[in-house]
């Protein structure tokens, strides 16, 4: 464990909690893409299948359980509890455009052709595009509440910190996970234009972020 990965996990947890609290306190999921949240729940489910078979550390196990619980709680709030506030017509991204390439690629490019490895690879590739429905919704509605932008900021920052973690681990322990690194770089690239908007718009106290 190094400071970059710990900071990354904390940012990831903060992002998930920001979104969950926003939905719970405002009792509304307006402006939130339910599809992205479903994809994140799938990412955690397919990645943490070794939750009961491989023990790494108490931290690892606890964080996996927390991420699974919070992501399913978020999906529950969106599609069950506050479903009457869910504007599905804005959440119109075609998930098959993401799932088909990701499933195909995880069968082509993986470390081992075993169910657990393929599902892990699928979760890594899926995570890199899981935010697309949310970013698509923001470009479609042309705006995002500031709390949603804070959520996206921490979510993007988490994987950027993981890249720093991979650089650190490569130089200190020769660790190199090609699939995770390539996918993580692609994922972070998707956030770059958002980071620009976030810094120029939201942090200047503009409250709501309206796209040009």
């Amino acid at each position: 464990m190094n400071i970059f990965r710990l900071a990354g996990d904390v940012c990831h947890l903060v992002a998930i909690i920001i979104l969950l609290l926003k939905i719970w306190r405002s009792r509304s999921c307006a402006g939130i893409s339910g599809k992205s949240q479903v994809l994140f729940a799938i990412v955690f489910t397919t990645r943490y299948l070794d939750l009961f078979t491989v023990f790494i550390s108490p931290y690892n196990t606890i964080m996996k359980v927390v991420f699974l619980a919070l992501s399913y709680a978020t999906v529950y709030l969106i599609y069950m509890r506050f479903r009457n506030t869910f504007n599905s017509e804005n959440d119109s991204f075609r998930l098959e455009f993401l799932l088909v390439p990701v499933i195909g690629l995880s069968f082509l490019e993986n470390y081992a052709f075993t169910p657990l490895e393929i599902l892990w690879t699928f979760s890594i590739f899926l995570e890199s595009v899981a935010i697309m429905p949310q970013l698509f919704m923001i470009t479609k509605t042309g705006e995002a509440e500031s709390i949603t932008t804070h959520y996206l900021f921490f979510l993007g920052l988490y994987r950027a910190l993981y890249i720093a973690n991979w650089v650190w681990r490569y130089h200190t322990e020769g660790f190199f996970d090609q699939i995770a690194v390539v996918s993580g770089v692609v994922q972070t690239i998707f956030y770059i234009d958002f980071f620009y908007l976030y810094v120029t718009k939201v942090l200047r106290g503009r409250g709501k972020m309206t796209l040009p």
């Binding site: 790494i56 081992a112 660790f175």
Partner: peptide
């Protein structure tokens, strides 16, 4: 090296 099996990252 390529990593398989033990995955210690979240």
């Amino acid at each position: 090296e390529r990593v398989t099996g033990r995955k210690d990252e979240l």
